[in-house]
Simulated assay, not measured.
Amino acid sequence: MRSPLPSRGFEQHADKLSTASSLPRFRIGKTSQEQIVLAITVLLVIVFGVTLNGFATVSNLLNLLRSISILGVLGLGMGLIVISRGIDLSEVAIMAGSWSIALIEMQQGMAVPLAVLLALALAVFIGIINGVMVAFVEAPPLFVTLAAGFVIYGLAFWFAPAWVVYAPKDAPGLTFLGAGHLFGIPVPILVFAVAAIAMQLFLSRTSVGRFVYAQGDNPEAARLSGIALRPLIVLEYVLVAILAWMAGFVWVGTTGSMQMAITQGTMIFDVVLVVVIGGISLVGGRGGVFSVVVGCILIGTLLNAFTIMDVNSEVQNIIKGVVLLAAIVLDNWLHPRDEETARQGD
């Protein structure tokens, strides 16, 4: 006879799952990781505003927010998959690979709208493959997506053998999401805001969003309660791919090109950093959109200050690594591991 513990564990955490995706509530005496990170960010903004010339200007703060927009959109996708107790290390490769191929097709005469749809179709196809491998083949998501990243890089570079693929200069609509302004606000900031609101509504106002939290909190209990986990997993990886495509759209508009070199850099670890430091637990079932937002703002604040202070990239990587380790330790301290709800299936 199957042990009833998973069902009891699901009931035990029903209240937590129903409120995990709601907007953050600040309560005295119960400090969350998001609140701690937000407080640190406010303190850093005050300190840098007083000590660094040019930091507290409106133009610099807008540039700060603009600089984290792409990272924020990618972070929303990574946050979704980490909440579900998974991970996707191919997200940056999906962004770069799909758009590199689309830009090559534009250079060869394909209409811009068709090429944009081609990039979306490629991204979704890769997301489906990742989801099927994880959900139906039951391969570990870490290795599936790591391998997918290498495959995407190899295929894209074989198809478009150049480190940088440039967008056509006669396509102003292609650059609007990255270089345009609306009501004086850079469009990338608005893209991140709209994506964040949409993800918040998805996680907090839909049954599928609540299923994502249930899956991350206790996959076995979620399965016993009737949630179809395999299709849900495929959907999650498809959503990550769509957000990667959106981030690539902004990237192309901002730089006028797509650089394949970013797939071999540290950008994917920056995405994981903003997710973990914001409060989305690597064991799943915890955190939300607010976690990604505060994580992005903190990292953006640090990087902006480092740029003004002319700190070299090696020192920046060391600091980011230390911050990531501190975030993991803080998460373990605030949320001790629950062996009952940590069960991952049969």
Rank of each mutant, 00 (worst) to 15 (best):
L76R: 06
L76D: 04
G77D: 06
G77R: 05
G77T: 03
G77A: 02
M78P: 00
G79L: 01
G79T: 13
G79R: 03
L80Y: 02
L80W: 02
I81K: 03
I81W: 04
I81C: 04
V82W: 03
V82K: 07
V82R: 06
I83M: 05
I83T: 12
S84M: 14
R85G: 06
R85H: 12
R85D: 14
G86I: 00
G86P: 00
G86R: 03
G86T: 01
I87V: 14
D88V: 04
L89D: 09
S90F: 10
E91S: 14
E91V: 14
E91P: 00
E91W: 07
V92G: 00
V92S: 03
V92I: 14
V92N: 01
A93G: 10
A93W: 08
I94E: 05
I94A: 11
I94R: 08
I94T: 13
M95I: 05
A96T: 12
A96L: 10
A96W: 01
G97K: 00
G97Y: 06
S98I: 02
S98N: 05
W99E: 14
W99Y: 01
S100N: 12
S100T: 13
S100E: 11
S100G: 15
S100Q: 14
I101M: 15
I101R: 07
I101D: 11
A102W: 02
A102Y: 04
A102G: 10
A102F: 00
A102D: 09
A102N: 05
L103W: 05
I104L: 15
I104M: 15
E105H: 09
M106K: 08
M106T: 10
M106F: 01
M106Q: 13
M106A: 10
M106R: 11
M106P: 07
Q107P: 03
Q107T: 13
Q107D: 15
Q107W: 00
Q108F: 00
Q108W: 00
Q108Y: 01
Q108A: 15
Q108V: 02
Q108D: 15
G109L: 11
G109T: 10
M110G: 05
M110H: 03
M110A: 11
M110F: 01
M110S: 08
A111L: 15
A111W: 00
V112R: 00
V112C: 03
P113V: 02
P113R: 04
P113F: 09
L114E: 12
L114V: 12
L114P: 12
A115T: 08
A115G: 04
A115S: 13
A115K: 09
A115P: 06
A115C: 09
L117H: 01
L117V: 13
L117I: 12
L118N: 05
L118W: 11
L118T: 10
L118I: 03
A119D: 07
A119L: 05
A119T: 08
L120W: 12
L120C: 11
A121Q: 06
A121M: 13
